[in-house]
């Protein structure tokens, strides 16, 4: 059976094609302001990647902030359930999953079958989401992709007072004016953000193994700060973590089919 999993996120829309439980294709596109066309574009890209035709897909499963726009979906999977299933799919030893995307952060406690036991979420506030790092990158005029590697080059701990991304923008600009090197500023930004995600994980309990999915998992600076804050050596991250929820949605549908 071939299943397409689509995660229509705030920033990117991701699609994966699963054939008998194995990932055979992926596609990602910027969500922009037209979610429906982003869904179609990302699905087309994943089909192309898998080398199959739209008619070959048996069922579509959707998740993410814009899941209502996935018109052909046979099933709509709640984001918490999708991320729990994704973590279990990639790492059966996973007991805690955190998903940090552009506009949200979540932490879920799961059992050995990927069932949700407890969860904590942070949404509708940029302070606890990837948007925070993006806004800071713009403020200090650094490419977003550069932020993480820059943070890794610093061993300073500069506390940030502002919590809100808007106020933090002025704070980091102030640091630039005070001639603080951008590496140290970037580290301060990641530390601040990681401490917020960690306090959310602490609410559900820190149980290893810990898995991270979502676009922010691609940021090595963030992952470094996260590990340090959690006091653990390893955070498990699948290849292409941004596709995590899309995979989870597809797996949920497969198990229910």
């Amino acid at each position: 059976m071939i299943i397409a999993g689509i995660d229509c996120g705030a920033k990117n829309t991701k699609s994966v094609i699963l054939r008998d439980g194995k990932i055979i294709g992926k596609g990602m596109t910027l969500t922009g302001f037209d979610q429906a066309s982003a869904v179609k574009e990302s699905l087309d890209a994943s089909l192309k990647d898998a080398g199959i035709d739209a008619r070959d897909v048996d069922k579509i499963s959707g998740t993410g902030a814009g899941m209502e726009e996935i018109k052909d979906a046979a099933m709509k999977v709640n984001e918490i359930r999708a991320m729990a299933k994704a973590a279990n799919y990639f790492f059966p030893s996973a007991r805690t999953v955190t998903d940090v995307g552009a506009e949200m952060g979540r932490a879920v406690k799961i059992d050995e079958r990927g069932k949700v036991i407890d969860f904590a979420i942070n949404e509708k506030c940029a302070a606890g989401a990837g948007a925070f790092i993006e806004a800071m990158a713009r403020a200090i005029e650094v490419e977003l992709e550069e932020m993480g590697p820059m943070a890794l080059r610093s061993d300073k701990s500069i506390p940030m007072n502002a919590q809100c991304a808007i106020f933090a923008e002025s704070e980091v600009v102030g640091l630039i004016h005070a001639k603080t090197v951008k590496e140290d500023i970037s580290k301060a930004i990641h530390d601040a953000m990681a401490s917020r995600i960690v306090s959310m994980i602490r609410r559900i309990g820190v149980n290893e193994d810990i898995v991270m999915i979502g676009g922010v998992a691609l940021n090595p600076g963030f992952v470094g700060c996260l590990k340090r804050e959690l006091g653990i050596d390893r955070v498990y991250i699948p290849a292409d973590p941004a596709f995590g929820a899309a995979v989870g949605a597809a797996v949920v549908l497969k198990e229910e089919a």
Binding site: D118, S199, R202, R203, I204, G205
Partner: peptide, 16 residues
């Protein structure tokens, strides 16, 4: 400074 992050500071005492 504590007041600005109560959601996080109080988090450990408030499991879901």
């Amino acid at each position: 400074d504590k007041g600005r992050k109560l959601k996080y500071e109080c988090g450990p005492c408030k499991p879901p």
